[in-house]
């Protein structure tokens, strides 16, 4: 059964033009010497031609007219790349990566590497980690400032787009 499926699979690749030149020669040799292969090949070739000859379905005669009437109500949307500023995306991404890195470095810095390797006693003492160094007023202020700046940048872009649209309409 597996051999039969393998034969079919190789013959389909040959018919679809997906076989390598060496494989093509091997199959052609088999087709000229093996009657079973030849018969299978003709069966698959007929199926291939039938599949190629099937007719496409046609929608109603009014189809194009309906589409054209509908699209008359719309405008082509501007390309996504024209209104997505990659710099903003990169700055937001950069901010979060920096934040993750800072936490990771701080966490690693708290590890007591000289502690004995006892699995029941982890070298990190959660109680010793001083979160107040991170979540202090300065940190929160810087975080808020960055968000305000990013928010203002987005607002600026939005207003600029609005202005452009008003100019276009005028």
């Amino acid at each position: 059964m597996d051999t039969q499926q393998n034969t079919e699979s190789r013959l389909w690749d040959y018919i679809d033009g997906l076989s390598s030149p060496q494989e093509q020669s091997a199959i052609e040799a088999m087709l000229s010497s093996n009657l079973e292969w030849k018969s299978k090949y003709h069966e698959l070739l007929e199926a291939h031609q039938l599949l190629k000859s099937t007719e496409l379905e046609e929608p109603s005669m009014r189809f194009t007219k309906n589409v054209m009437e509908e699209i008359a109500k719309y405008h082509i949307a501007p390309a996504a790349k024209s209104y997505i500023n990659k710099k903003i995306i990169w700055s937001i991404g950069g901010f979060f990566i920096t934040l993750i890195l800072a936490f990771t470095i701080y966490g690693i810095a708290q590890v007591d590497w000289s502690a004995p390797t006892d699995t029941s006693n982890l070298p990190i003492d959660i109680n010793k980690i001083d979160f107040s160094k991170i979540f202090n007023n300065t940190f929160v202020n810087v975080f808020m400032m960055l968000n305000v700046v990013l928010g203002l940048m987005l607002l600026d872009r939005y207003l600029a787009n609005q202005r452009k649209q008003i100019h276009k309409k005028a």
Partner: peptide, 14 residues
């Protein structure tokens, strides 16, 4: 199918 052509039209710039 009509909806597909309308979507394609609106996103043609993409």
């Amino acid at each position: 199918a009509q909806d597909i052509f309308i979507k394609a039209y609106r996103s043609l710039a993409d």
